[in-house]
Amino acid sequence: MKAIYILFPVLVLLAAACREQPDEKQLINKEASLPEDFNFSKLGLKVLSSSVNEKQNTMSTIYGNDLALNTAKAGTPVQAGEVLAMITWKQKKDEHWFGAKIPGNLQTVEMIRTSPDAQKSAKVDYQRYEGKKLTLKQDTTGNDKNIRYIFEQHPSVMP
């Protein structure tokens, strides 16, 4: 008989024993993660919507507090007390699934906070943080366009 039949069970056992367990830190998507000291999760925002820009090869998620979600859903004018955030990543291939793209390098975090205003329905405060370290951008050109874009997005349907 072929020696392979004696070897076979041994090889199977060996193969089973040799499964390597990847290091847990390697399973985190590091290049897409926000710096811990940015404390984004402490804001407790919910997901409003998710989108992709094929030309830029980026993907974005918009987050908001309950008030922001409710006004966006109702389509009513901006109110004081809304908090919104938009995070944008370069897309990368999902190494675990051929057929998917997932967040790659972190590009920007845009923050909007609204507060009471005497003239308008609310005063809008906008900040744009850029790059892996999320450094605050001082130049304000384009801010109005960016603010409008974020407010215009319909929330994704989540019954």
């Binding site: 919910k46 997901v47 998710s50 998620t61 051929f98 057929g99 998917a100 793209k101 997932i102």
Partner: peptide, 23 residues
């Protein structure tokens, strides 16, 4: 309650034309 949870990742599935959020 899923929609009130935090995000783990998002995914753009070109194999079946869908967008996904994992909470």
């Amino acid at each position: 309650d899923y929609k009130n949870w935090q995000v783990v990742t998002t995914s753009d599935r070109f194999d079946n034309n869908s967008l996904r959020v994992v909470f």
